[in-house]
Each structure stands twice: as C-alpha cells, then as structure tokens.
Computed example of a mutant assay.
Amino acid sequence: MSKNNALFYGLVVGGIIGGITTLLSTPSSGKELRGKINLSREQIEDILKQLKIESKALKEQIVKTTQEGTEIVKEVSADLKKSINQFQHDIEPHKKDLQKEIEEIEKKIKQLENTLQ
C-alpha cells in the first residue's frame, strides 16, 4: 500500500509543480489569455458559419448542374439517335451496291485463283 501512496503523492506534487511552472512561464495574464481564447473562438465560429453558407451554396449549384446535365444528355441522345437513323437511311442504297461489288470482286479472285492453278 505504501507504493500506491507514494505514487499518489508523486502525481499530486508533480501536478502542482507543473501548474505553478505553467503559470509562471505564461507570457500573458489570465485576462489576456481568456481574451485571446474568446477571440479565437469567435473567429472559428465565423469560419464555421461561412463554411456552412458556402457548402449550402455548393449543394444548390450541384443540384442545378445535375438537372441541367440530365436535360442536355437527353437532348444529345435524341439528336444522336436521329443522326444515326438518318445515316443508316442514307447509306442503305450504297450498302447494297457495295455488297454487289464485293461479291463481284470475290468471284474475280476465285477465277484468278482457278486460272493460276
């Protein structure tokens, strides 16, 4: 039990010495220190209020941008579908002609192969 008492007394004496050392080495008085702490607290509160306002504005801007982006994607998608359909319609006659030409070229290649053999 004497070890526990010694530890307890050591902690108390160390705490008292640490407190006295802190008080004597502090460069400003208690009033000045409390004033600085209050000023810092007020500055932090102002920063937090400003951050809250700016985050709310950012949220509103994100929502607005998302809505506008959705509308634009729908418009672009519809325009793209129209363009693809028009392109397919425009190339249809040429597609048939190209298929005929490819078939003719394949026939000629086979004829050349037969002739060379």
Rank of each mutant, 00 (worst) to 15 (best):
I47A: 14
M1E: 10
K59E: 09
K96R: 10
E104M: 12
L116I: 11
G15F: 10
E104V: 09
F8C: 10
E45K: 15
G15N: 09
T21I: 11
G18H: 06
T22F: 13
I72F: 05
T22G: 08
E103Y: 02
H89L: 10
Q117S: 11
I84A: 05
L80Y: 09
Q88V: 05
S25D: 02
K59S: 08
I102P: 01
L7S: 14
Q99C: 03
N4L: 15
T70V: 07
I105C: 01
L23E: 05
E103D: 05
E106P: 00
D46R: 08
E32Q: 09
I53A: 14
D46W: 01
S40E: 13
D46K: 07
G69E: 01
D90M: 10
S2W: 08
E113P: 01
G18W: 08
E104A: 14
L98Y: 12
G18D: 02
E68W: 02
K74R: 12
I105T: 05
S83P: 00
V13E: 06
F8D: 07
T65Q: 09
K107R: 04
K59W: 02
E75D: 09
N114Q: 08
I109P: 02
K36D: 06
L58N: 13
P27Y: 03
D79E: 04
K74T: 04
I91Y: 07
D97A: 12
D97L: 10
V63S: 11
K36C: 02
F87Q: 05
N4S: 15
K49P: 00
I16F: 06
Q50K: 12
E103V: 01
T22Q: 08
H94I: 08
Q117W: 01
G10Y: 11
T70Q: 08
K49F: 07
R34E: 03
R34N: 04
S29P: 00
N38Y: 07
P93A: 07
E54P: 03
R41A: 14
P27H: 04
P27I: 02
P27F: 05
V12G: 05
L51P: 01
I17C: 12
K82T: 05
K74Q: 07
L7T: 14
I17F: 11
P27V: 02
Q43M: 15
L23A: 11
Y9F: 15
G69D: 03
L24K: 03
N5M: 13
G35W: 02
T70N: 10
R34I: 06
K59D: 06
E32S: 09
K56E: 08
P27L: 07
E92L: 09
K31P: 00
T70C: 04
I109R: 10
N4E: 15
I17K: 08
N5W: 13
E71T: 07
Q50C: 02
V73G: 00
G35M: 08
K59C: 01
Q117P: 00
I84P: 00
Q50W: 02
I62E: 02
K49N: 09
I102E: 04
G35H: 07
L112D: 12
D46I: 09
I84S: 04
I17G: 05
L58G: 12
Q111T: 04
I37T: 04
P93M: 08
V73P: 00
T115W: 07
Q50T: 04
A78G: 00
H89I: 06
